[in-house]
Computed example of a mutant assay.
Amino acid sequence: MTDNNEAKRPVLSLKRKPTPKPAEAEKTPQKPVQATGKSNKRARKNARHKHNQMLRLISIFPALLSEEDPKPFKIGILEDMAKYIADNELTFGIGQVKSALARYTSNYRYQKALAAGGDRYDLDGNPCGEVTPEQQAAAKEKTKAIKAVYNGKG
């Protein structure tokens, strides 16, 4: 090829979309993103998996955990659970324990038990400390928020 042919080659350029001005962006209402059927199915599967992890944790610690009648557990229970699981060589990772505890403690019944106050319990179900008034107030707020979401107001 010669230098003349290279000079005659067309140059491609990309056109950019004009960016909306801030005033125009505020006028256009944002539509909520709709979840697709596939992601809903994935979310249901993930929720079912987390619920099964929670049920497995309940079966390991029946004296402390209960779906029907939850009790507030002591501060630092995660470390006690991890030690128990390691000592008994159970196949339940720390991440799974954290996930199951998060699901358990975000439950309305657990928050309601926490809001009621009283004793906290260890792995064997023995009283070990008490719920503070600040923790009770926080739990009451969480129960209100859970109710609002459940009733469609959240």
Rank of each mutant, 00 (worst) to 15 (best):
P22L: 05
P20C: 00
K15V: 12
S106C: 06
Y110C: 01
Q135N: 01
A63T: 08
G152C: 07
K144A: 14
T143L: 08
K83W: 01
Q96H: 12
R48C: 06
Q53Y: 07
A102Q: 11
R120A: 02
R16C: 02
R56M: 04
E134F: 01
R48D: 13
G37E: 14
K112V: 00
K83M: 04
A86K: 13
D69T: 09
K98Q: 12
Y121S: 06
K21Y: 00
S13G: 08
A47P: 05
A138S: 11
G37H: 02
L101G: 02
K140V: 07
K21E: 10
A100I: 02
G118Q: 01
Q96R: 11
Q111Y: 04
K17T: 13
A82L: 10
V149Q: 15
E134D: 11
S106Q: 12
Y108S: 04
N5F: 13
R120Q: 13
I75M: 13
E130W: 00
D3W: 04
G118H: 00
N52Y: 03
Q53G: 01
E89S: 14
L123A: 03
R42M: 11
I85M: 11
M1N: 03
A100Y: 07
E79D: 15
A7M: 09
A63C: 07
A43N: 14
G95F: 04
F92R: 03
F92G: 01
T143M: 09
N40P: 05
K17I: 10
Q30L: 09
A139R: 01
I58E: 04
N126Q: 15
V97A: 11
K21W: 09
N151A: 10
P29H: 07
Q96W: 09
D124H: 08
P29T: 08
I94S: 10
P133R: 05
A138G: 11
E6F: 11
T19F: 05
P10G: 10
P133T: 02
S13T: 10
S13A: 12
V33I: 15
N4F: 10
R48Q: 15
F61P: 04
T91Y: 08
R42Y: 10
T28E: 14
T28C: 06
K144P: 00
D87T: 12
R103D: 00
I58W: 00
A86Y: 04
F73N: 02
V131E: 03
T28K: 15
G76R: 00
L12N: 15
G152I: 07
G129Q: 06
H49Y: 10
K142F: 00
S59P: 01
I75E: 14
T19M: 08
S66C: 05
L123I: 11
D3L: 12
K17A: 13
P20R: 13
Q30H: 04
D124L: 15
G95Y: 08
M54N: 07
Q111M: 08
